[in-house]
Design a protein around this nucleic acid. Sequence first.
RNA 1: GGGCGGAUGGCGCAGCUGGUCAGCGCGUCUCGCUUACACCGAGAAGGCCGCAGGUUCGAGUCCUGCUCCGCCCACCA
Length: 873
Amino acid sequence: MDKQFDASSVEVRWSRRWEELAISHADPASPRPPFTIALPPPNITAPLHMGHAMGGSVQDSLIRHRRMRGYEVEWCPGTDHAAIATNAVIERQLLAEGTSKEAVGREAFQARVDAWYEECGGRIYEQMRRLGFSCDWARSRFTLDAGYVRAIRTVFKALFDQGLIYRGPRIVNWCPHDRSAISDEEVEHIEHQDLLTHLRYPLEGGGDVVVATVRPETMLGDTAVAVNPEDPRHRHLIGRWATLPLTGRRVPVIGDSAVLLDFGTGALKVTPGHDPTDYEIGTRHGLPIISVIAPDGTMDVPELPRFHGLTVERARREVTQALDELGAVVAEEPYVHEVGHCERCHHVVEPLVSEQWWVRMADLAAPAIGAVESGAIRFHPQRYTDFYLGWMRGIRDWCISRQIWLGHAIPVSTCANGHRFAWVEPPSACPSCGSTELRHDPDVLDTWFSSALWPFAIFGWPDETPELSRFYPTEVLTTAREIIFLWVARMIMVGLRFTGSKPFSDVLITSTILARDGSRMSKSRGNVVDPLEIIGRYGADAIRAWAAAVGTSGQDQRFDEERVASFQKFANKIWNVTRLLVSRLGDGESIPSAPSGLPPRALLPEDRWILGRLADTLQAVDQAISQYRFHDAVERLYSAIWQDFCSDYMEIVKVRLEDGVSPPSRAAAAATAVGTLDAMLRLLHPFMPFVTEECAQRLPDAAPSLQLRDWPQLDSGWSDPAHAGEQAAIDELMELVRALRARRQEAGISASDPTRHPVVVRGGGHELSADDRRRVLEALVRVRVVPSADGPAQVIVSGGLEAELHLPSGAGEERLRRQLADLESQAARLHARLSDPGFRDHAPAGVVAGTQQRLDEAARQAEALRRRLGPGV
RNA sequence: GGGCGGAUGGCGCAGCUGGUCAGCGCGUCUCGCUUACACCGAGAAGGCCGCAGGUUCGAGUCCUGCUCCGCCCACCA
């Protein structure tokens, strides 16, 4: 066994082993209770980043834990075709090659896409395996799989037939770059510094009205001027007509309460064709809609050649200038506001009116709101409940059609006689009239429409498959907060409607991983960290434990590579303590499974002590996992293993494990050490799967995999009421150990000095025999415990124990005085608190008693010190 | 404009229901290559928990206000 834990070879070996053992393949016929997670399918647009690595690690921890708890665990992996995002990736590639999708044609484009899915998808699965994810690979799904497509069409057709999907012209968020509509959720608002321009429109019959706008170019499509009917400055204008400069169009002045009194000039130019607010005003007043911007983002005003074909940005300048020439520009003021951008390509979104497919959301939302309000679905952290509910309560219809090449075709056709129908299997004739002259809808679906079906479509829905009935609904959905609206909400709505069950019961929102400087990780910033690189440097266990330590807080987390490194060291520590233990056991030695196989009498106090620590750790870990507080679990295990087991327990029992020691004592130590380490490895396994497997494998009587072992349970043999108080007595002794070490060092005794100076220990209860005390002390600190000694001594008071350490140099009184001063001020503070009648009256009895106890303790120690220091103190 | 989150030793973070909660990792300093581990061991230094009020016998921990950061939502053109 090497001194260094060789993560990479262990990872390769165990990954293969797990697959051979088929531990991750679930059986729908199993009698065990099911536990299912549907892995959020990563977009096949790029390899996984640290956020994916973390989210997946958190899920795998849950998965491994439940497996050990006896569940039939299904963790179904998959990938998402991510239509619009992949479309953008491929278009970018083509652009870089100096060509375009139009130039290469649909077929070649599709071939590029397929090749990309092959390559990128393969890399993603490879990353997941390297991270140690124990997914049910055989059930991997891709959102373009035939079965999945059928599920999508089934849902679409049902919603269509029920009137919940409709088509119609409405104002949409249009991305001129992608040449497609996008949903409200795919628009990101970015601050812009623009000009607010005040324009004067002359009124028929004299006078004028001044409107304010950041988009003067849209005035070419104005069809009204609106003022607030409550506005004393303007309301008398309602009913009059204005004449638009440049176009000469007559537009009415109308009254609408959407116009704000205190913004701009109080008068609003109304462009129903290119502004959502204006569109609604236009709807209310029956205004005509004039489109002046084409889908490619250029001006579409053939009757005005001066502006026709200009980009919107140029048109803005040109129109303003033209208006200025007419004297219509009254003022321009700098103005900061937010402008919508396409989340994918970051181009400015152009609101325009277009025929699209929509999902009516109100009916779908109601049960989805209820499921969360009733607590049937719970968010962790809890604050995301309101986040979700707020959005759901204000939900608007969802634009699901996209005008791109890539994605699921909208399963709707129209026949020559104008019958429009949705289908699941591509039709050859119209179901109404039999016409075979069919025109298929050219649009594709929003990717999130297909994602919404994920938890049940992966199991073969709409067929009643064994997997579906057994593994659905899933249990925990682990995801990032940024897709709560885009994905989580829609899964809940669709799942409830089509399966009658909530798709999951717990939504675990993981932390967001930021770059070291607190900025977002992004390719353009060049600060993206590759999980494989981190694995290469520190091992998969390190990244896994890091994920557990930072992933479940739901907080933003800056990526801290040092933290990952600390877990690599931890893995190495575990490896080495295993080596130590195994080397002391001897080849092929069989150890009775501790501690139940041993007569309790053979256990020494330190054995019972570490078993007590193990019991505490188990309880803490169980509680932490049940609350999704993985950082608590990992931290507890970190200190229990490193400090309690390695630094304390193993150091104490090392000598008992040597050859030639009395057999009962050695057997007890070996059994306790093996039993404790084994249990701790099992507890840690969900968070550090590789090193725990490798180490457990080297212990006597190992199972083929920890995944086939049971989760540790409290064992009555771990604590013995006959030895109550012993635990505390050992803890007290440990404190003395640290005090003795400190004193030795302070006295200038070299760490390498082998001299064991005599020490006399007094006080303490009767839980430990003098032998017990001597054995532990001498194992942990270089002293020799003697019944009595003469000469100058350093005095140490620690808890109820008092020790005289006989060192050659007599220094150290200063330290004693400092300690005494500390104790006195502590005692004074406690005394003051206890003398406060308010405290005595209000604080719970337990707290008062505890305070009293601490005061007594401090007083006793102080007294002992004063005695030692002699008169005059 | 509204909402949410953060502000704790040099850095990155944990502190659940108010009373050993002032802790962890890294870093720093001192001493040690002692046959498990130098990816180590031992010891030490370092924070009045953003600011100002309030509630309470008692507050990083609850309330109010404020200041900076980050994010989300929003039909003020």
